[in-house]
Amino acid sequence: MVICIPSGITEVEKRAVRDSAEHAGAKEVYLIHEPMAAAIGIGIDVEEPMGNMIIDIGGGTSEIAVIALGGIVCDQSIRVAGDGFTNDIWDYMRRQHNILIGERSAERIKIEVGSALPELENPPPDFAVHGRDLMTGIPKEITVSYSEIAHALDKSISKVEEAILKALEMTPPELSADIYRTGIYLTGGGALLRGLDQRIALKTKLPVHVAEDPLRAVVRGTGIALKNIGRFKFLIP
């Protein structure tokens, strides 16, 4: 069995994941770090002497990693990702529209009208959300547009941009040269946020590619690792 774990995980936590898997009947458990699995899932040959930058924007963390020769060369991880975006929207609705909504409704808004840019070429239609009016306590409906959500998400997205710039700064120059050509790959659910690829491309002046089916890139890569247990040296036995 191969299990993909967030790269910020401690030794104790690794032990816990391993124990749980063993209790569930697994005999041989290997662990793999998330950016590595994501890169493999995208179809990158991670063992080549070629640098690739992967940005995985998941629920809890955004992980930015430069991978070459079967290893993670440099890595930035910040606790700003999908859940943070959802929380920004929740907070914005409360402050701006005086409406208290549930976490799942906030996530729906993000998926339906979430945007990293205040102006999009193919804008989504406005979205109606329901919650509790903070003044009257009565259920009510509010319609939101993607531009206001872009505004609500701006601060968090800037933090992701900063982390990307930091990771680029830490990258050894030979690998920078590779990344100049290959660009940046986006995976994880956050990669689906409208305009995010464009915004990162504007900021870094690098080509940005969104992985095909970004929510499944990591598991696809973990599946490929499973078939190469004997060969991939970066699997943690």
């Binding site: 069995m1 993909c4 697994a26 598991v219 696809r220 499973l226």
Partner: peptide
């Protein structure tokens, strides 16, 4: 079931868990 657990890959995510 024992055999199965050897042959699976798991993405243990904070938001979603997937198994191949």
């Amino acid at each position: 079931f024992d055999f199965l657990t050897q042959e699976i890959a798991i993405d243990l995510g904070t938001a979603n868990t997937l198994i191949i």
